[in-house]
Design a protein around this nucleic acid. Structure first.
Lengths: 109, 109
DNA sequence: GCCAAATTTAGCTGAACGGCAAAATATGGC
DNA sequence: GCCATATTTTGCCGTTCAGCTAAATTTGGC
């Protein structure tokens, strides 16, 4: 996969992940609770069933917005703030009126 | 609808709209062509059929990301950069490490 | 008024999505 | 090894979504 294809795919994964309110919510809760929670803590805090939450986490993981780390029989999910910033905010920067034309900020998706 | 409900709905509409590559693409094309194009110019530039493009435009319109203005028998679509910035970038700002706690920047969706 | 152009609406179809309950898979403690 | 705990995977179902073609709508020019 070329570099720009990779970038496109990243943007797509991230924005697709952000499209669902529950997933945005998970990210926010992670953020406000210090960036790290176990799957159980996350699931407990949500209206939907545990499997549903698991799947949302999987989407976020695939988009690179959270990172997973096993600790005993529980799994820690950690927010990747940098990725959120680089991919999502990065795409939004394309619209800044006076876009500094730094190499690699041209027409993404 | 309360103020925060409105905000939530805005965030949802905007991120749902941004979830599809064609719609992101439309916004970018609009941006790079000066922020204003007719429906026909937009449709001509896309792989999918005209009705499909129309529907994408409708989604963007409902999300407030573009504005519509009739001119003769064609319709001009104009990018609303401010809305993109306020809603999308606004939500992303919740994650800034040193969040200035200005009133109204608390836990959205 | 009538025709052609610009765009949207209607109606359909197949694919993707989100939800759940039930089953499966680790893993730690005894 | 066996049981309980933590979490994921599987299978199923109803809804939403994106695409298409064909029909409808609106508007300008004659």
């Amino acid at each position: 996969m070329s570099d720009s294809e990779r970038k496109l795919a990243d943007i797509d994964a991230v924005f697709s992940a952000l499209a669902h309110a529950s997933r945005r919510h998970i990210l926010l809760v992670l953020h406000f609770r210090g960036g790290e929670m176990t799957a159980g803590e996350i699931a407990a805090r949500f209206g939907c069933s545990w499997p549903t939450t698991t799947r949302h986490l999987k989407v976020l993981l695939a988009a690179g917005l959270v990172l997973q780390q096993q600790s005993g029989r529980q799994r820690l999910y950690r927010l990747d703030r940098k990725r959120l910033d680089q991919v999502a905010a990065g795409w939004l920067k394309s619209f800044k009126p006076a876009t500094r034309t730094d190499p690699g900020s041209m027409p993404p998706a």
